[in-house]
Design a protein around this nucleic acid. Structure first.
Length: 706
RNA sequence: GGGGUCGUAGUUAAGCUGGUUAUAACGCCGGCCUGUCACGCCGGAGGGCGAGGGUUCGAGUCCCUUCGGCCCCGCCA
């Protein structure tokens, strides 16, 4: 058969009636009536019914057709017929026609399937079917079969459409798609890097990019002016439903622009992307400062689909008799609350006191919680008697409290604790009470982020990254107080409580950049070592520029309303960052490690006393970073047994000798009974004075060595 | 790293307070059936309950250990 004649199953129309066509695809469903045989033939475009009738097809064709099974890959030739009246199938697109087969070729047979590919039950709209879902692990193991299923197929095609829409739009705005390296240097994002050892430079490593951050800025300095890339990014952190170790970012950077340029560009882009999924986003996108977001929702990625905004009632209780509040306020604390309107029916005394006050809110980090229900114009709670009439009236006013409302207050000496706990509670309540409308989308730009955050060591660190422009340049890099008050020219795009993307206007003035590094406590030398090549570029006329990155997996997942981004990625990793299909990551041959110069890394750094666990083989394999296959293990056992024997021999032959110096208490195995001594140098700390990290009398080893 | 939850035929599940040969649906295999489309009818095969150990006269059900999946926190823009 000549595939050039092939037509698509899902695209047959009544216009084709009477034509002889060639179809190719997979056997989706199978109904054998003895003489008459119906098959749903599926290809990427959809499903059409093909009929094997002994009155039309040759006996040989019918015989072979009876041997077909689910997911056999076949090609058939036949005539398109309008279906007889009363035999149409309204559940499939091509349900008004069928193809009467005269020729059949089995292109490839299929084993019995690990799970059903066909969703024929769902096509028919039966409520009973489709409630069972196949375990995701199994789906990933047979992802190629999973991809034949309608939902994955549709997701991947929709993803493509969205990507295509992005490319078209950005092209129309003068953006150029440019690829940046995957084997590269560490970028300043702050997550753990994936490292790739270099064979040519033993013991040197490439880092996989956490984003193309440095390169996109270099492209601006390179005069490309408008760049974008659908870039793969890598971060070695624990996974979540919306987090994969490798993910796709729409990376954008432009020169001679300001924030408003990007707001307009990205709003238009995002609206178009969501439109591909039939979603109309409200415009213009809301804007909220970081401070306002934190004050009213306790989150820098606020979900604005519902209310439950925070109200600060600290001032109400300035003179309070209620001792818990008074003590907190005396320590400089604050009191904030939310009004859960009209939900007192769902939140009984018992639930509020025993679940929320005792369990849920403490699990969010707050010490406690105060609640009040409004019934018949009066407040009702376990502690209402401690509050004055004035305080209660002030609360009523601040919260606009009415009958059926429930007020929840959280007080704490720490402003951050109140905000964080109330923020978590806000989301918890919205979910539990079903306050989140299902088909609503609330995009918002979060602006005016703090430029720096305080570190535990009393310094500052960049909230975004060190190349983000501050809102003003006249600051003293030594004044921590002042540094913490600086805002950055960064912005995040948040939709429904999920951060879809973020970016900033970058610094293009080398002196300003230098002072930022100074503020971060980096010396000239450290800066040069880390970012030297990058900063050098700013010595040659760097244009003002800025950009943004959009998480495309998250965006597509949100547009398609999937519960996890794994549903919109063809071959995702599972929760343990492994691929159930390929088995990656996997051990490699010793020779490969040797060639990369990785065999001896860490082998001599085993701390005393740690290597004696039950399974020494696993232990040694782990410590030496050498994988042992099952058939190599018996040999290894032999080697260890010999080593044990030798050690025993050595112990027997050990003579009288001076005890060894030691910095850590150890058991003397070769000469039992002889007391160990601690080196005076260790006592004074001199011995460890040059060690990279010291804790007490021990020096710390990277946790990878345990 | 901490917490939760799940792991029973190919798949999806049921199996209550431990008790005779471990259930069901779909799938699979064989047979019948010329208008079905979750086709129908008849018959059949298939698991010893993730793994290991323990308690018990007796364990899928209880305990411990361990492995794996998913979810939350930490971590991560």
């Amino acid at each position: 058969m000549l595939f050039s004649e092939r037509v698509f199953c899902g695209q047959l129309t009544l216009g084709e009636v009477g034509r002889r066509v060639l179809l190719a695809g997979w056997v989706d469903a199978f109904r054998d009536h003895g003489g008459l045989l119906f098959i749903h033939l599926r290809d990427r475009s959809g499903i059409v019914q093909i009929v094997f009738s002994p009155e039309i097809a040759a006996a040989d064709v019918c015989r072979r057709a009876a041997g077909l099974r689910a997911e056999y890959c076949i090609a058939v030739r036949g005539e398109v017929k309008q279906r007889r009246e009363g035999t149409e199938n309204p559940h499939i697109e091509t349900g008004s026609m069928e193809v009467l087969v005269t020729e059949l070729e089995v292109l490839s047979e299929s084993d019995a399937l690990p799970f059903a590919v066909s969703d024929k039950a769902m096509v028919a709209g039966a409520p009973s079917a489709g409630t069972d879902t196949v375990a995701e692990d199994l789906r990933l193991q047979y992802r190629y079969l999973d991809i034949r299923r309608t939902s994955m197929r549709d997701n991947l095609i929709a993803r493509h459409r969205i990507f295509q829409c992005v490319r078209d739009f950005l092209d129309s705005r003068g953006f150029v798609e440019i690829e940046t390296p995957v084997l590269t240097m560490s970028t300043p994002e702050g997550a753990r890097d994936y490292l790739v050892p270099s064979r040519v430079h033993p013991e040197n490593f490439y880092a996989l990019p956490q984003s193309p951050q440095l390169f996109k800025q270099l492209l601006m300095i390179g005069g490309m002016e408008r760049y974008f890339q659908l870039a793969r990014c890598f971060r070695d952190e624990d996974l979540r439903p919306n987090r994969q170790p490798e993910f796709t970012q729409l990376d954008i950077e432009a020169s001679f622009i300001d924030e408003e340029f990007l707001y307009e560009l990205i709003e238009e882009l995002t609206v178009r992307m969501f439109a591909v999924g039939g979603i109309t986003l409200p415009r213009p996108f809301a804007r909220m400062t970081h401070a306002e977001a934190m004050d009213t929702t306790g989150s820098d990625r606020p979900d604005l689909r519902f209310g439950l905004r925070f109200v600060d009632v600290t001032s109400v209780f300035a003179q309070t008799r209620y001792s818990i509040f008074r003590q907190i306020l005396e320590r400089g604390g604050c009191i904030k609350g939310i009004n859960i309107q009209g939900q007192s029916g769902q939140l009984s005394k018992n639930v509020l006191q025993n679940e929320y006050a005792k369990e849920i809110v403490p699990s969010f980090g707050a010490k406690g919680m105060t609640w009040m229900r409004v019934e018949d114009g009066k407040f009702e709670s376990n502690i209402v008697q401690f509050f004055s009439e004035l305080e209660l009236e002030a609360l009523r006013g601040k919260f606009s409290a009415a009958d059926g409302d429930v007020l929840i207050l959280i007080a704490d000496p720490s402003h951050a604790t109140v905000t964080s706990a109330l923020g978590q509670l806000r989301l918890h309540l919205a979910n539990r009470l079903g306050l989140i409308p299902s088909n609503s989308f609330c995009p918002v730009w979060i602006t005016e982020f703090p430029l720096f955050e305080a570190t535990d060591e009393g310094g500052v660190t960049s909230s975004h990254h060190p190349f983000t422009a501050p809102d003003r340049a006249d600051f003293d890099p030594k004044n921590i107080e002042e540094l913490l008050s600086l805002r950055s020219r960064a912005y995040d795009l948040v939709i429904n409580g999920e951060e879809l993307g973020g970016g900033s206007i970058r610094i293009n003035d080398r002196d300003l950049q230098r002072r930022i590094f100074a503020a971060l406590g980096l010396t000239e030398a450290e800066t040069k070592e880390k970012f030297g090549f990058f900063l050098r570029a700013f010595d040659f006329g760097a244009p003002p520029h800025g950009g943004l990155a959009l998480g495309m997996d998250r965006a597509v997942s949100m547009i398609l309303k999937t519960p996890s981004i794994r549903e919109v990625i063809a071959f995702p990793k599972n929760r343990g960052a492994a691929c159930p299909l390929t088995g990656a990551p996997s051990p490699v041959k010793r020779e490969q490690l040797a060639e990369l110069g990785l065999l001896n890394l860490g082998s001599q750094d085993v701390l005393p006393g740690t290597a004696e666990n039950e399974n020494r083989i696993d232990r040694l394999s782990w410590v030496s970073r050498i994988g042992l296959s099952a058939d190599e293990r018996p040999g290894m056992e032999d080697v260890l047994a010999q080593a044990d024997a030798l050690a025993l021999l050595a112990a027997q032959n050990a003579g009288e000798g001076e005890a060894l110096y030691t910095v850590a208490p150890v058991a003397n195995r070769t000469r039992p009974g002889i007391q160990e001594k601690c080196s005076p140098l260790a006592e004074t700390g001199q011995l460890l004075s040059r060690a990279p990290a010291v804790k007490g009398r021990f020096f710390k080893v990277a946790s990878i060595l345990e």
